[in-house]
Structure formats: structure tokens, C-alpha cells
Design a protein around this nucleic acid. Sequence first.
DNA 1: AAAAGGATTGGTACTCAGTACCGTACTAGC
DNA 2: GCTAGTACGGTACTGAGTACCAATCCTTTT
Lengths: 219, 219
Amino acid sequence: MSPAPASARDRLVAAAFDLFDVRGFDETTVDDIARAAGVGRTTFFRYFGSKEAVIFPEHDELLARIAARLDAGDADSRDSAVAEAARLVLRYYIGEGDRARIRYRLISSVPVLKTREIASIRQYQSLFARALSSWAPGDPDAVLRAELLASAIVTAHNHVLRRWLRGEVDDPEQAFAHAMSVVLEPGPHDTSETTVVVVRTGSAPDRVAAAVERALRGR
Amino acid sequence: MSPAPASARDRLVAAAFDLFDVRGFDETTVDDIARAAGVGRTTFFRYFGSKEAVIFPEHDELLARIAARLDAGDADSRDSAVAEAARLVLRYYIGEGDRARIRYRLISSVPVLKTREIASIRQYQSLFARALSSWAPGDPDAVLRAELLASAIVTAHNHVLRRWLRGEVDDPEQAFAHAMSVVLEPGPHDTSETTVVVVRTGSAPDRVAAAVERALRGR
DNA sequence: AAAAGGATTGGTACTCAGTACCGTACTAGC
DNA sequence: GCTAGTACGGTACTGAGTACCAATCCTTTT
């Protein structure tokens, strides 16, 4: 549809999504993609390391953007930094529109693509874990806590993204904000009964108890 | 070293670990493995779907064992069911000894194997998420909570396993128990300052405040 | 304008993973 | 002894991914 002179890389991506969508991933060879894009097979492998990689064309750039956003954060702005970095990814996929939906269908049906996606997600997760770990105190469990929060953020992000891809969510940004509130909410306890959470502190018990009472009454 | 008549499958696994360890993954062909095991190349692919799969020989059986353990649980025994299922995996890898260490080295240095491992872990995670979800109430966030807890358990497990593989932990079972306590502990807040967690409840504020005070004083 | 140099591309040839198919040996049960 | 099932080996093929070389284009320099 577009007049013509898109870059060879863009034409390859477009051709790949097209062919994978109509003919299937296994039934499409790299030769087919290159031919449809009007380039040589060599050129394909010059831009993408593998046949799967063409499905995630901006993966590296997204990784870099996330890393940049996380690097700009610090221990004080922790929660907002990770939330914004995750939103970055969410917005990207939402903005893709149809392409994201085609990818979702492909990933759901082709095991090797699902594997690839899971590995991509893990790269995001590692970035989050590293940033969180660098902001953490010398606590012996700091690394574990960082990994746990990183995995929670990624899980929340993916939960929302998948629901949006299935058409179960209208406002993904708001849904993600809600999911993050679930992540940051106290432990995975059953909320149907009264739960008392005790965090050791230097403050006198009376002062803490008073603060709790205020919190329960007010707000 | 063993006299001889191990099954073809076991000989293939042994030969693969051996060759991968000394010569490297990329530098070893499936032909090499088959020849070293004294079988044909066809036989290799009859037992393992791919060259990578031979590194995780008992993966399917482990998955089945986890599924069985989780199926035996119910909503009431939730915490112990998931903890035991995770321990199942931990014990398996600990019991492997040297083989687990070789796998760890290979995974750390060969990207395609790392990808494969991450995908395996995700399969465990999905089992946990499905079980947890099936035990959850009709809460609209129940699925999200199930996925979050599943990812937390898997993260905790892997944290401990990796530390053990690096020789940073002596008693992995105890370390895992501790990690699980961190997982189940209230929210990911900074513990260096006083944190007040409020969980909505039907009880009167006074009664809750009194319970908190008791908790802070006693124990 | 011409030459030089770098970057993008295409083509060829090769290795090897993975699949399909077929023939063969060994075992079990009648 | 015969047959059916199972485990195995061999051959042949497709296609992903790599290495290398030659051609073209575009920019810069003289």
C-alpha cells in the first residue's frame, strides 16, 4: 500500500509478518521472506540473527530504552522508575496494534516463538532486577527481594498485556496501574479475614499501634 | 567407568554431558554424541527432540511429578502444596550433583541453552499458576494474584538453586524455606523505616489496633 | 570531474540440526 | 517355527545459519 521506498529492514519485517500470518511460521522459509521483500537471503540474516528474531524487530531498542529509564532512577524514586519503565514496554506494544495481535497469535501457536518471547521477557526482568538490586541496602536478602519485585512487575505487565491482546481490557494503562497496586499491596494473604502484619521497627509499640489505628479510621 | 550395559538413552545423556563439558556445546555435533554413545544418530532424535533437550533429560518427568503434587493439594493446603512442589524440583537438582554444575556452566555460557532453561522454568511456573488459580476465589484479581505468587515461588526457587550451584549456600532446603518466608512476608516495602500495612476488615478498628499492639509486644 | 574508500547488498558454497522413510534385528507370545 | 511388536541403524532430504567473495552505490577527497 505504501508507495515503496521503505528500508530493506522494514520491508523484511512487513513481509515476514505477512507470510507468517497467512501461511504459517513453519511453512515460510527465510528465502520466501527475502524474496517477498525483494532482497537477498543474505540481507535477511544481516538484519536478524534468526528467523524468529524478525518477529521482535525492536526488541533491542526497547531493552536499551528500559535500561536508560532505569538508569535515570534512584533508590528514592524506585517505585515510579520501575512503573514508568514497565509502562514504556506496555505503550510500545499497544501502539503496535495489529502487529502485536499477529505476534500474539503466532506465539500462541508456534512453540519456538513462545520460547523466544519468554526469553525476551526474561531480559526485561533481568534489567529490572539489576536496577532494583543496585538501589537496595546491604540487606542479605536484598538480591532476592529485587528479583522477586522484578518478576512481579514483569508478571503484572504481561498479565495486562495479554488481557488487552485478548480484548478483555479497554484501558491497559489503567489496568496496569491497578495491577501494580496489587503487586505493591501487602503479602499474598487471604483478604477475607483479618490479617495483622508486623514489621519490626525501632519505634515504640505504642506509637505504631496509634499509627495503625489512625490508618484504619482515616483515609 | 560403569561396567557397560546402561540404556541407550542414559549413554546418550552421559556422552552429551561429557562432550559438551570438555569440547563445548557448539563444537559438538549430534553425530559426535551418538557415536560416543555407540548408537546411531537416528536414535538420538528418537529420545530427544533436539540437541539442547539432552541437557534436561528428566524435564518431562519432573513436570509430571510437580503436576501430580499440585493436583493433590487444595485451597486449604495451598502454601504447603506449592512449597512442597517447589522443594521437589530443588531436591532433584541438588541430587544431581556434578551434572547440575556442568549444566549450570553450560547454561551460563551458551545462549541457546539459557533460553531453553528459561522456557523450562516457565513451564513450572505455569503449573503453579494454574493450580493456584484453580484454588482461588472468584475475585477479579484472582488470576493475577495466582500468577504473581507462581512467579515469586519460581523466582525464590531459582535464587536458592543458583546460589547453591555457585557454592554460596550450604543447606539449600533451609535457604529455600527462608526465601519462601520472604515471599510470603508482607509487601515489598523498605523495612528500614516503620511501615504500616492496612488490610480492610470487618472487625472494628479498636479490635484490630489492639491485636497489632499485642503482636508488636509479644512474640 | 575523477579517484578512492566505506558501506550495503547479492550470490555461492558449506555445515549441521531436524524429519521422513525404510529396512533390519531382536524379543515375546502363540 | 511363525508372527507381531519394538528398538535400532542408514539414507536422503529440507532448511537454518555461517563464511566468504564480488559487485554496486554513495560519500568524501583531491
